[in-house]
Write a protein that binds this DNA or RNA. Structure first.
Length: 423
RNA sequence: GGAGACUUGUCCGAGUGGUUGAAGGAGCACGCCUGGAAAGUGUGUAUACGGGAAACCGUAUCGAGGGUUCGAAUCCCUCAGUCUCCGCCA
C-alpha cells in the first residue's frame, strides 16, 4: 500500500508513475486526497467532542465522590446529549475511513525511476545473458516426452490422485527435486541467509500483508472452514514474520531463505504455455527475502540478482536477465528483474526467478518498521526473489542435457542426487 | 474433540467500574558519582491519527472485534492464541 504522505506531497508525480505502470484511472489519486481531507475534518470534530465527553465524565466521577448526586445527574444528561451528537460523526468517519482504505489499496506500487516504459513483455529490457544455448542432436524432444521416456515424472497419475497440474515425481525425478531444494538452500545459507521452514497455509492478515489479498484472491487455494490460504510462495509466511514489529536499526539487514511447495490455482491459464512443467498448480521453490534499511534496498536488489545469477551459472544453463517494463511488473513491485533459462527442445525462454524491490509497499501494509537515529519509527524496505523455482529449471536441465539415450546432469548436483546420469 | 485457567507497555508484574496511558521492578538511553568500571543516584523511555512553527495539546489503543455504562484494562458476547487435565493420534 502506498503511503498517504507520498500522495499528499506529490500527487502529480504519483499519477505520472502510475501511468508508467499502465494504471489508467489516475483520478483515484484525487479521490483519495479528498477522502483524506474529509477524514481529517471529521477526525477533528470527533476528537474535540469526545474530549468534552471525557472531561465531563471525569467531573461526574468527582461529583459522585463528593456525594453531589443531583449535580452529577445534570452532567449525565449533558453528556448523553453530546454523545447523541457524536453518533453521526462516528458513523461518517468510519465510512470515510473505510472508503479511503479500500481506495488506497487498489493502487499498485509506484515503479522506480529505473523502470523502462512499456506495456508488454516485449518491452522488457535484456540486461545481460549468460551460458550458451545447447546444440541438441536431431531427435531431441521436449521435457514432457523425456519424463515419460525415463519414467521420472508422472502427470497422469498426479491428475488421478488430485487433478491436472499436480505432478507426481518418481525415482530419479523425486530425488532431483529433493537434491535441488537442498542445493539451493545450502547455496543461500552460505551467503548469509537464515533458513526457515514456514507454515504452508496462512491466515487472512498474512495474505493481505504481502499483497495477495484483496485483489489476487482467486489465485490462491482457500480452506473456508479455517479461513486459511495455501501459500502461493513462501514469501508470504516469511515476510510476515516481522509483521507489526519495530526493529532496531542494528538488526538490519534481515536475510531469510525458505523452501516451500507453492500452490497456485492459475485460473485462466491455457494453451501451450502450460504444457508439462511450464505451469503447474503445485511446485517446489526456494525463496530469498530481505528486510533492509530504506537507503540500502537498491544496492541489495543488485546483490540478490548477482546471487541468483551465480547460482544459475553453477547449473550451466543458458539464461538471460530482464528488467521488467512498467506494464509487465507485479502489482506490489517497484523494480523487478526476471531470470529466464533457455529450454533447448522447446526453443523458448522460461522464467525461473523474479527478484523484486517492494520498497515500503509491503512493509506499509505489514507495519514493519525500525527506529532511526532520532528514535523515530520508519518503514523498512522488503525484497524477495526466487532462488529458484524448480519445475522450469528441471525442464531446462532435462532438455538441454539430453542425448538419444540418456540425460547427463551437471556435476555440481552429484553431491545432492548421487548419480547425475538418467538413462 | 471435551473441561478448566489465562492473554496488561521492551520484558516481568500490579490493577475487578471513576483524574490509570496504566503502580512497582528489570532492561535500555542520558546525566551525576568514579582514575576507569561496578554499585549507588537523578531524569527519560509505546504506537497511530489530528491540531500546532515549536514547546506541547487532543483522541484512540491493556490479544482482536462488538456490547452495557455518564465513565471499562476492569462487567457481558463473539473470535483468536497460550497453558493444564482428559480423549484421540503420527
Amino acid at each position: 500500500m502506498l503511503q498517504l504522505q507520498v500522495l499528499r506531497q506529490n500527487p502529480d508525480w504519483v499519477k505520472e508513475r502510475l501511468t508508467v505502470k499502465q494504471f489508467k484511472d489516475t483520478d483515484v489519486v484525487d479521490t483519495i486526497l479528498s477522502l483524506d481531507d474529509q477524514r481529517k475534518k471529521l477526525q477533528l470534530e470527533f476528537d474535540t467532542t469526545q474530549a468534552k465527553v471525557n472531561s465531563a465524565s471525569k467531573e461526574i466521577g468527582q461529583l459522585m465522590g463528593k456525594g453531589q448526586k443531583e449535580e452529577a445527574e445534570t452532567k449525565k444528561q449533558e453528556v448523553t446529549a453530546l454523545k447523541n451528537s457524536l453518533q453521526p460523526i462516528t458513523d461518517k468517519l468510519a465510512e470515510v475511513e473505510k472508503r479511503l482504505q479500500d481506495t488506497l489499496v487498489i493502487l499498485p506500487n509506484l515503479p522506480s525511476e529505473k523502470v523502462p516504459v512499456g506495456k508488454t513483455p516485449a518491452d522488457n529490457i535484456v540486461v545481460r545473458e549468460g551460458g550458451k544455448k545447447p546444440n541438441l542432436p536431431a531427435g531431441s524432444v521436449p521435457h514432457w516426452d523425456l519424463i515419460k521416456k525415463y519414467d521420472i515424472i508422472d502427470f497422469e497419475t498426479g491428475a488421478k490422485i488430485t487433478g491436472s497440474g499436480f505432478p507426481l515425481y518418481k525415482g530419479k525425478g523425486a530425488r532431483l527435486q529433493r537434491g535441488l531444494i537442498q542445493y539451493f538452500l545450502d547455496f543461500n545459507t552460505a551467503a548469509g541467509y537464515t533458513e526457515y521452514l514456514p507454515p504452508f497455509m496462512v491466515n487472512e492478515a498474512s495474505a493481505y500483508g504481502t499483497g495477495q489479498l484483496p485483489d489476487k484472491e482467486g489465485q490462491m487455494y482457500y480452506m473456508p472452514e479455517d479461513k486459511f490460504y495455501m501459500i502461493p510462495t513462501s514469501e508470504v509466511p516469511i515476510t510476515n514474520i516481522y509483521r507489526d514489529e519495530i526493529l532496531k536499526e542494528a538488526d538490519l539487514p534481515i536475510k531469510m531463505t525458505a523452501y516451500s511447495p507453492c500452490f497456485r490455482r492459475e485460473a485462466g491459464s491455457f494453451g501451450k504455455d502450460v504444457r508439462g512443467l511450464n505451469r503447474v498448480h503445485q511446485f517446489e521453490k526456494v525463496e530469498i527475502v530481505q528486510i533492509v534499511h530504506p537507503d540500502k534496498s537498491y544496492e541489495v536488489l543488485e546483490e540478490m540478482v548477482n546471487h541468483v545469477e551465480k547460482l544459475l551459472n553453477t547449473l550451466e544453463l543458458p539464461y538471460r536477465i530482464l528488467k521488467l517494463c512498467g506494464g509487465d511488473m507485479g502489482f506490489a513491485s517497484a523494480l523487478t528483474y526476471d531470470f529466464e533459462v533457455y529450454s533447448g527442445a522447446q526453443e523458448r525462454w522460461l522464467e525461473v526467478s523474479s527478484v523484486s524491490n517492494f520498497e515500503t509497499y509491503q512493509t506499509n501494509r505489514m507495519k514493519i518498521r525500525f527506529k532511526d537515529e532520532k528514535g523515530k519509527p520508519q518503514l523498512v524496505h522488503s525484497l524477495n526473489g526466487s532462488s529458484m523455482a524448480l519445475p522450469r529449471v528441471v525442464a531446462a536441465l532435462l532438455e538441454n542435457n539430453q542425448t538419444s539415450d540418456r540425460i547427463q546432469l551437471p556435476t555440481v548436483l552429484e553431491k545432492y542426487i548421487g548419480s547425475t546420469l538418467i538413462s
